[in-house]
Design a protein around this nucleic acid. Sequence first.
DNA 1: AAACGCCGCAACCGCCGAGGT
DNA 2: AACCTCGGCGGTTGCGGCGTT
Length: 325
Amino acid sequence: MGRAPCCDKKGLKKGPWTPEEDLQLINYIQAHGPGNWRNLPENAGLQRCGKSCRLRWTNYLRPDIKRGRFSFEEEETIIQLHSVLGNKWSAIAARLPGRTDNEIKNYWNTHIRKRLLRMGIDPVTHAPRLDLLDISSILRSAFCNQSLLNLQGFLSAQALMNPELLKLATTLLSLNNENPDLVSQNLQQIQAMNPQVQSQVTPQMQFSQFQMPIQNNVEHFSGDLKNMGCSNSQENSVPSCLAENLMAQASQADLLGNPIFVDSRNNTNQNLGYDSVLSTPLSSPTPLNSSSTYVNSSTEEEKDSSCSDWFKFEIPESLDISDFL
DNA sequence: AAACGCCGCAACCGCCGAGGT
DNA sequence: AACCTCGGCGGTTGCGGCGTT
């Protein structure tokens, strides 16, 4: 049985709301409350359907609506929540007081989604796009923009997604004969986080001291690719059979590229990004692992630059990386 | 200055689930 | 159980503003 329209649409006005209509709606709701949206237009003297009134009120006229640019913290929150909730805009909006689902949806589609795509991150899975992951460009970008190479963050956040990247990083460090202290320092940090992982590669590199979950994911992931009979997806989206793997891998690092180190001793994450998201009360949104501040007047390019920090890592000045570029 | 194209956002559309009868 | 209404949600559209040519 076909559904009856929410109201008789004959003679009802559509399109942009006028200030007079807005005032009428505001005055009515302030005096009587929304009540039954279906009957509201008639009672308020508006030539609109109830649905239009409700949308106008909830998305624009509500007094607690926050207008203006999204802050960096809000943007981080949206990205993290989207990675968990998907396109559940209302659920995301519930954690961003003053923001509507429509506004968040628009902001995602017009800003965040495009930025993620530019960065080679699939906005659906939040994993690097396998077909576009260009190692040299990532490295070039990072090396040009930053003189810092945070090896552990780099490897944990990115190498686990791509065995080639892992190999490249290994080679990178192997070139670092002139600065063994840095290698030692990084490895000590890694070892401190995973003391039980045994060495599998060369003694000087000891890359297997990285987390076993990473290794397992890489192997598992490679296996999936083999099973699919494809080694390089042509599609933007990740094949559905890979989605779970990718999400699992993505969960190893938060969206700022900060690795979520799994402590195999007690099986807890040292970076509780998602947990903090999920446990955040509705009334008190938190910056979600952000120590940075974002000025509203920043440009999109500045935001891109900020996001380039996702690939930030430290690199010693003595390390010649030109061979890779 | 005009034409054109792109982009952002408000608003609309259609579907769905919950709840009432 | 079947039907109906309503509110809510996500996807899509279309208009206006802005930049470029």
